[in-house]
Design a binder for these strands. Structure first.
Length: 174
DNA sequence: CCCTGATTCGC
DNA sequence: GCGAATCAGG
């Protein structure tokens, strides 16, 4: 295959739309990504407007933690915080597990703001900038908040009683 | 190991 | 001019 005007046209278009060289090569057919890249350079459009991988702004975007601030940064409330006892609504609803929202708002803690008493349940892809930790209050010496502790410390599994497949449900959290 | 673009250099 | 090989990086 050769670089006909038409193919060059397509190349320009796709490249400027931010497609990667390999994607373009695949679409054009008959060329490798190397060929595409080589052509791109010869055409002088190496730098492009719409990068396929949005170039990271130098360093970290560092999302500001929303709700929870590090323990240290927060004025310690009255000596003995009232231990909040939530009324346990025993909704024995069908074969459903305690529902812990898959996305608890964006996690509120980053690796930098995660304090000792904050839930260390990971949220999201650890290799992503979006990665956070749950960050809700965790009791001293316990790594997770109440909800995540329930998920983390599963009592011995009963052989599927009530038809609940816990292991499957658990995957939602992994 | 998957991917990305950049560069080189024989053709 | 072309693009495979290679490099550098995520």
């Amino acid at each position: 295959m050769s670089w006909t005007d038409e193919r060059v046209e397509t190349l320009k278009k796709l490249w400027q739309e931010g497609h990667s060289a390999s994607q373009i090569a695949k679409q054009l057919g008959g060329v490798t990504r190397n060929a595409v890249i080589g052509k791109v350079h010869r055409l002088g459009l190496s730098g492009r407007a719409a990068p396929s991988q949005p170039a990271r702004p130098l360093y970290k975007p560092a999302k500001p933690p929303r709700a929870a601030a590090p323990e240290a940064a927060r004025p310690q409330a009255q000596a003995t915080p009232v231990r909040r006892v939530e009324p346990v609504v025993a909704v024995r609803q069908a074969p459903t597990l305690p529902i812990v929202p898959l996305v608890e708002g964006p996690g509120t803690a980053t690796v930098l703001t995660l304090g000792a008493k904050m839930c260390k349940w990971p949220i999201g892809d650890p290799s992503s900038d979006e990665f956070t930790f749950c960050g809700r209050r965790a009791d001293d010496g316990i790594p997770y908040c109440v909800e995540h502790s329930r998920v983390a410390y599963q009592p011995q599994q009963k052989k599927k009683k009530d038809g609940v497949d816990l292991s499957r449900s658990l995957r939602r959290y992994l």
